[in-house]
Simulated scan of single mutants.
Amino acid sequence: MVQFTTQVATSIEQSQQLIELGVKPETADLIYRSIMSDDGSPEWKLQLCPPTLATADNEIPAWSLPRLLELLPYEFPSDTLKPKLHHPELIKYESGYNFSVCRYTADCLVGTCIESSPFASCVSMIKWLIAKEYFNKEYLL
């Protein structure tokens, strides 16, 4: 029998990386909340949260894959001499996932490193978009 290990949200580390990049916590659709387990040790639980998130000390915003994909621009101009529109494209390989930035042809401008999950690829793509100033500034602090 095949065991599925579906990741449903950014990990705590990926969430912290997005926050360090300046992504607004309010764009998150989930939250990790620290609660006490039966043995008295803290434990992180993933929960739904309202979009007007105001995180407390025991909370870390988290993003689902659909939410991360919503944050990505549909298209943006090329920074080359031939200004043509490009779009991000998530590609699955046997060894992992990556985003490529392509025109509506197979002409790719750039790609992220192959990552272990689509979440890691989204975080890499958002980092690249922020560096190039293509990420929607409404989603940044």
Rank of each mutant, 00 (worst) to 15 (best):
G22K: 11
G40A: 14
Q14M: 11
S100G: 07
L141M: 10
Y93F: 15
S37Q: 07
Y97P: 02
C49M: 11
L46I: 01
P51E: 04
P77Q: 09
A62W: 06
W63H: 07
D107R: 04
A131P: 00
P118H: 11
S37L: 12
S116Y: 06
A28M: 09
P118N: 13
Y74M: 02
A9M: 07
L90A: 09
S11G: 03
K92P: 00
K45N: 02
S116F: 07
L68E: 06
Y104G: 05
Y93H: 13
A106R: 15
S116P: 00
T105A: 06
Y93N: 00
S95T: 12
N136S: 08
S78R: 05
D107K: 10
T6S: 04
E20P: 00
L30T: 01
C49E: 03
S117I: 04
K82L: 07
Y32M: 03
L90T: 07
T27S: 14
G22V: 08
K127E: 12
K132C: 00
S124N: 09
L140H: 03
M125A: 12
Q14A: 05
C113L: 13
A131C: 03
L140K: 01
P25L: 09
T52Q: 14
F76M: 09
P25A: 15
S64V: 06
K137F: 05
E26F: 03
S34L: 14
A56G: 03
L81P: 01
E70F: 14
S15N: 07
E43V: 02
D107L: 07
P88E: 14
D57G: 09
K132F: 01
L46A: 01
G96T: 04
V8A: 03
L18Q: 02
S116M: 04
Q16R: 15
F135L: 13
Y139C: 06
